[in-house]
Nucleic acid binder design. Structure first.
Lengths: 138, 138
DNA sequence: CGGTTTCACTTGCATAATGCAAGTAAACAT
DNA sequence: ATGTTTACTTGCATTATGCAAGTGAAACCG
């Protein structure tokens, strides 16, 4: 089911064909920045994704190798979703989006520290998020 | 008409609410990397955007301050669309998308040089694209 | 053990976004 | 004057998303 549609061979276009819909990046954001890892947690996000859309996006992200799905240590009724390396490597894109938005629209207070850190040393900031994520997910 | 919908206060979510649809980033890509600046040129892109969608996306991007619309020097029947500073500052996001895709899916030969340049010195590469764009648009 | 709750979905149907073909009006070219 | 180019608009088909309710397996609770 993966990669049925591909509007062109352009890397930008192909990337958007994978995760350029209304919800995929928000799910990934939840995993990266809020350490979420289960269906129920994603549903609680303030944007309010619908249950059927969430299921379909998770499946698509899995088929594209951006997240992995496995048994949840807490319960057999749950699943544990976690980013693959391919998913972790989307972090720099999020950082750039964050900086762009902060520059032109400002950000809520809770994000100021992150923006400041990213502005001072982007590489180090990306590395710190990756490390934090790997730690939390291990 | 601008900013009617905003799913949350999250910078990522807000950014996606501005340009996170199926087409906006491809129009901006055409302006940045292919120096396109008119309706007719955008229509010719390989992905094949529909005329009504193109018109609506151009209007939205203008309302959000990402592009500007002005008279075309060649003809009064045409308009000239160009990126604002806010639009130019999306370039780092494109570069990261490009690198991500190249890392996991490879890119056609015509993009190899760009990926190599971006990998060696990202800051310099972003600067060179910005400069090239400003030159072409002046 | 049996009933209730939790969890991760699926299903059916409404609405919104996008796709397609044709049409329009102003400017331009001959 | 006439046909062409340009930037759209309009109407309708199709696809994506939104919403509410339902389902089945596992967990929890007395």
């Amino acid at each position: 089911m993966s990669q049925i549609k591909k509007r062109s061979e352009c890397p930008i276009s192909c990337s958007l064909d994978i995760w350029g819909d209304k919800w995929s990046l928000l799910i990934i954001r939840d995993m990266i920045f809020y350490k979420k890892s289960s269906y129920g947690e994603f549903l609680k996000s303030p944007e309010g994704i619908a249950t059927n859309i969430l299921a379909s996006r998770l499946q698509n992200l899995e088929e594209n190798g951006i997240i992995g799905k496995s048994e949840h240590p807490d319960s057999k009724a749950k699943f544990l979703y976690k980013l693959t390396e391919k998913g972790i490597d989307l972090i720099p894109i999020f950082v750039e989006i964050h900086l762009w938005y902060a520059k032109y629209s400002g950000v809520p207070a809770e994000f100021k520290a992150a923006v400041s850190a990213a502005t001072q040393d982007k590489e180090a900031y990306v590395r710190s998020i990756k490390d934090a994520w790997r730690k939390a997910a291990s």
